[in-house]
C-alpha cells in the first residue's frame, strides 16, 4: 500500500519533500529532547557549588597525617618531619619511574615560597584507585598500597610496584600560611 503514495500522479517530489521535512523535524526534536535526559545525570548545581574544601593546616602536628574529603574523595594531608623531607630530597629524581623533584610535589604559598612541611595528595593509588596505607608504610617509608603492592616514598612518588605515576596532587592554593583551599 505504501507504493500507492509514492507512485501517485500528483507531484511526487513535493510530497517527498514534506515527508523528509517532517521526519527531520521529528528527529531534531527527539535529539534536542534527549539532552535534558542525559544532562540530568551530570553533577547538580548544589554538588558543583561544594567543589572546594578549606582545610586549616595548623591543627596537624608534626608527623601526623589527616584525611580530608574533597569532592567526596579522600585527600592525604601530611605534616612531614624534617627526616621525611630530607629523605625525599636526597633522591635523584631523574632515576625515578615518574621523575619529579620534591618541590614539584608542592605548591607555593601566597608569598611564592614553598612550605615543604605540608604534603597534600589525592589518597588514591594511581594503579587502580585503592587508598594506600600511610604513616611510613612500605619499603620507602612513605605510603604503601595493599591492593597490588605499590610503594611510595615520603614525597608520594612511586618507587616500586605496578602503579605508573606518583600520587596525584589535587588543585589547591594557600589562602594564608596555614589555610588551604582545595579545588
Amino acid at each position: 500500500m505504501a507504493e500507492t503514495v509514492s507512485t501517485s500522479a500528483q507531484d511526487p517530489s513535493r510530497r517527498d519533500f514534506i515527508y523528509i521535512a517532517t521526519g527531520a523535524a521529528g528527529a531534531a526534536g527527539a535529539a534536542l529532547f534527549a539532552w535534558p535526559l542525559v544532562d540530568q545525570m551530570n553533577p547538580a548545581a548544589d554538588t558543583k557549588a561544594l567543589s572546594t574544601t578549606e582545610v586549616d593546616l595548623s591543627d596537624i602536628s608534626e608527623g601526623q597525617q589527616i584525611i580530608a574529603k574533597w569532592q567526596g574523595k579522600p585527600v592525604f594531608i601530611r605534616h612531614r618531619t624534617q627526616g621525611e623531607i630530607d629523605a625525599a630530597r636526597g633522591v635523584d629524581a631523574s632515576g625515578l619511574k615518574d621523575p619529579q623533584s620534591d618541590e614539584d610535589r608542592l605548591v607555593p604559598n601566597q608569598d611564592g615560597k614553598y612550605e615543604p612541611k605540608y604534603l597534600i595528595m589525592l589518597a588514591s593509588c594511581t594503579h587502580l584507585g585503592c587508598v594506600p596505607l600511610g604513616d611510613g608504610a612500605g619499603d620507602y617509608e612513605g605510603w604503601f598500597c595493599p591492593c597490588h603492592g605499590s610503594h611510595y616514598d615520603t614525597a608520594g612518588r612511586i618507587r616500586k610496584g605496578p602503579a605508573p605515576k606518583n600520587l596525584f596532587l589535587p588543585p589547591y592554593q594557600y589562602l594564608s600560611d596555614t589555610l588551604i583551599k582545595i579545588g
Binding site: P36, D39, Q40, M41, A44, A45, D46, T47
Partner: peptide, 30 residues
Amino acid sequence: ILAMHYVPHVSMAYDSVQHINRDVNFGWLL
C-alpha cells in the same frame, strides 16, 4: 529519571523534590 534523584524517606522526600526542581540539571523541566 526522577527516581534517580528522589529519596523515599519522610525526612527527605519533600526536600529531594525541591532539590530536583532547584539543583538537578533540567529537573525543573522533568
